[in-house]
Amino acid sequence: METSKIITIPNHWTSPKYSLGQHTKQGIIVGVQYYLFENLLAPERDGSWRYAVLVSSEDEQVDYIPESQIRLLSSPELRLEMESEIDFCQRKIQNLQQHLETM
């Protein structure tokens, strides 16, 4: 069972626009980090969010991308990506089932 986690963001920070697990043109968001500007003692100065994006699941390549450079997938692009991921998983299940049958 998965437990809920609550993350509190200080009032003087902006909220992140994107969330963990969200698919973008660059990849899947796997992390979020807030970067303060030079003066840590000035809460009125906004910082910025950066996202850890899994660019390639094959070699686990992660890029860190500023919020302003994140580009979301269109609905058709997201649908195509999801269908591709489903096909991949179904092939993997079939391969595992075949392997089980040969045991």
Rank of each mutant, 00 (worst) to 15 (best):
Y51H: 08
G21M: 09
D59S: 08
N39I: 04
V30K: 03
S15Q: 09
D46G: 00
F37S: 07
L40H: 06
L41W: 05
I29Y: 14
K25H: 02
G47V: 12
W13Q: 06
L20S: 07
D63Y: 07
K17L: 14
Q61D: 01
V32Q: 12
T24F: 03
A42Y: 00
T24W: 04
S48V: 14
S19N: 14
G31P: 03
D59F: 01
Q33P: 01
N39G: 00
P10E: 11
Q33T: 12
D59Y: 10
S56A: 08
E38R: 01
Q33H: 04
P43K: 01
V62M: 08
K17A: 15
P66Q: 05
G31L: 10
G31Q: 15
A52D: 13
I29S: 12
P16V: 14
S68M: 14
V55R: 07
V55W: 05
V32D: 02
E44D: 09
Q69E: 15
D63S: 08
Q26A: 07
P43C: 05
L72T: 11
L54A: 03
S15Y: 10
R50Q: 09
I28Y: 01
L73R: 00
Q69W: 00
S56D: 15
Q33R: 08
I29G: 11
G21R: 06
S68C: 14
P10F: 03
L40M: 07
V32R: 13
R45K: 07
I29R: 10
P66H: 09
R50V: 11
Y18D: 13
G31S: 15
P43R: 04
R50M: 15
E67C: 07
V53C: 01
